[in-house]
Computed example of a mutant assay.
Amino acid sequence: MRSLICFLFLLPFSMLAQDVIYFSSSSNSRGRDLYAMTSKKNSHDKLTYQLGSGHYPHFNSPKLSPDGTTLVFQSDPDGHDRYTIWTMKTDGSSLKKITQREGMYPNWSPDGKTIIFSGRRNGIWEILTIPASGGTEQLLTKNYQAGTKPKWGATCSYHPNGKSIIYSYIREKVLYSYNFEDGKSTQLSSNGSYTHPIYAKDGRIAVNRKIDESYHLVIIENGEETVIAKNVISYSAPDWYSNESKLLFVGMVNGNQELFTIDLKTREETQLTKNNDFDAMPVAY
């Protein structure tokens, strides 16, 4: 395994007092790192670094723990696209590899004790859980036994009560729920246009949905859908601010992917980044 180290930095007090956003970004074509910024600051503080030659790891799909202290993400320091699940503190310290086998699209349980993710087991994409500190995996889906073969992994989000999840396979783009009590999945949408569903603490769902030829950011509440922002980047998940007054999303500006927030009351959009880099997968606290 090539050496992977993390640079430790301390967020200044002025940054701690503001909204902090974590995201994946790249200023070149060799890979991606995780960064932190405040919603009122256009400069990036780099969280991840690596040493070695011939490969630049990708640090993707960060998710913030419920207590705001820890990031879980996927990275491939062992080889290009050989993703496993990692955690680290939000100051960049305490980097830890959580899964020894393939893992992608991680997310947290509401109590922060469990990580849910996708991985290929027996050559088939499944949804699994693992303790946040590492340990024994638990298989949720039984696609291998059922003879089902999803074309790619799923992104998942726990219901705030912790009793179920909502998920969507990246290439199928159909919404499902999984109930932990009976171990059964239920199809929620009739067509393949939904990707990256994320629960709010009050049970609302934010999701990217393809409508006509473009993807829009949609909120689902009590079965009703409302378009919140148009022309979003489909493969970058939205995220709720902790007070649920705003959503984060990614849009395209002059050929560049940029981070945005939208105020759910006024529908005012604010562009957070303005550069030529790849900026995506933002999460907020």
Rank of each mutant, 00 (worst) to 15 (best):
G162N: 08
S214T: 11
L175M: 02
I98F: 10
R204C: 02
D81I: 08
P106W: 03
A280G: 08
I228Q: 00
A154R: 07
D19F: 00
F7G: 14
A146S: 08
E172I: 05
S26Y: 04
S245Y: 00
W108D: 01
L175C: 01
L51K: 11
I21W: 02
V250N: 02
S3I: 12
Y285A: 00
E181H: 11
S234K: 14
Y169R: 10
G192D: 07
Y158Q: 13
G103S: 10
K40Q: 15
P238Y: 00
S177F: 00
L139K: 09
Y194G: 02
P66S: 06
R120A: 09
L272F: 08
N256S: 08
A154G: 05
L188F: 02
E269P: 15
R171H: 10
R204F: 03
Q145E: 12
N161E: 14
S157P: 00
G147F: 05
K63C: 07
K149N: 08
S242P: 15
K46P: 10
D76N: 15
S75F: 15
M88G: 04
K201H: 01
D111M: 08
R32A: 10
V20C: 11
S94D: 14
F180Q: 06
C6P: 03
K184W: 06
M15I: 03
R120M: 11
N276V: 09
V227H: 11
H216F: 14
D76V: 15
M88T: 01
P282N: 01
K41Y: 09
T99F: 05
Q100H: 13
L34P: 06
T87S: 13
Y35Q: 07
V253T: 13
A237H: 04
M252I: 06
L47Y: 02
G251E: 07
S39G: 14
G112V: 06
T38E: 06
L47V: 05
D111S: 09
Y105F: 11
Y56S: 13
P77Q: 13
Y241C: 09
D239I: 02
E213V: 13
E172N: 04
A206G: 04
